[in-house]
Simulated assay, not measured.
Amino acid sequence: MAQYDTIGTVGVGARAQIDAGLRAHMNKVYGLMSVAMLITGAAAWSISGLAVTTDAAQGVAQIGAGEYLTSFGQTLYASPLKWVVMFLPLVLVFAFSAAINRLSVGAAQLFFYVYALAMGVSLSSIFLVFTGTSIAQTFLITAIAFAGLSLYGYTTKRDLSGFGTFLVMGLIGLIVASIVNIFLASSALAFAISAIGVLIFAGLTAYDTQNIKNTYVQNAAMGNQEWLGKAAIMGALSLYLDFINLFMFLLQFLGSNRE
């Protein structure tokens, strides 16, 4: 692999410098990702709290025993606005990828956090479908699995680049199938999508981690701090998406529906 060839051709001092820089780079990637996760979680929890009430006088539609959608919740989840909420994160991530080269590091980081906020609004509906306990348990399981997979991608000597094309093709098929199933509402297709989704994003977590590492090692000698800053943000975005999607697909299996 390129990373090992690059490191192997430099001296001990340069190798130590690259290793130190790589650790700092990965710490930044995980730090950015963690902040984005906090924004997403806080937004999802806050929005769901505004969308649901136990006061029948303030509710406009009953969704469970003693629980009602507020007018805000009705607008967000049961009006045409729901399509905007659903697809806005997808639009933003494509816009972000297209605009990253024209943005400053600060603007790119702000865009990333705005995207995390939009994702939180989009995911807020899970609190209406699943119990808070099962959401928390699934999040913990996802975090443990993600940590293990990312650690594997960082430490393995095996070249995972060959899996990249396969995983990306699978991801495209998964997106198409998910969009189609919005209209078909097939439980069998939903189960298949969830099972395949877990496998794809488990693989992408390891692959993306190794790719972030390789990209840094191959370009560290340039010393372009703006490029490195943007690379950290894009790496954080990749791992953030891996985590979110792994969590959502696992939730389909592990989540307990609200009564």
Rank of each mutant, 00 (worst) to 15 (best):
I193W: 04
G255F: 04
Y216G: 03
V180W: 11
A51E: 01
G203H: 11
T131D: 13
G64E: 07
A44T: 05
R102L: 02
V176W: 08
I233T: 15
I7F: 02
Y30G: 00
G73K: 11
T6I: 14
G197N: 06
D242C: 05
Q74I: 00
F111D: 04
F127Q: 12
A177N: 05
G229Y: 10
T155R: 13
M33I: 05
D242F: 01
F112N: 05
L92T: 07
L174K: 05
A236Q: 01
S194M: 05
R15Y: 04
R158V: 12
M169E: 02
L204M: 14
T155A: 13
L151I: 08
S256P: 00
Q225V: 08
V105W: 03
V60T: 15
Q62P: 06
I200T: 12
G73N: 09
A56H: 03
A44C: 09
L149G: 09
A99D: 00
K157C: 01
P89R: 08
Y240F: 14
A195I: 13
V10A: 00
M169N: 10
I63P: 07
N224Q: 07
V29W: 03
L69Y: 13
I193G: 01
A16C: 01
T215L: 11
F243Y: 15
S104C: 08
S122F: 02
A36K: 04
A220C: 07
D19I: 10
A57W: 01
L32Y: 13
A236L: 00
G197L: 10
A36D: 09
S125C: 02
G59D: 07
A61F: 10
G64I: 07
P89W: 09
A108Y: 10
Q3R: 15
I200A: 11
A57D: 10
L254M: 15
G120L: 13
F94Q: 06
A51Q: 04
S122P: 00
S186G: 10
R15A: 15
G235K: 00
F146L: 03
A36C: 09
V12G: 00
G41K: 06
F146V: 03
F253P: 11
G106M: 11
T9Y: 00
A143T: 15
L241Y: 02
T131N: 07
V93C: 04
F130M: 08
I18E: 07
S122V: 01
L204Y: 07
A221R: 07
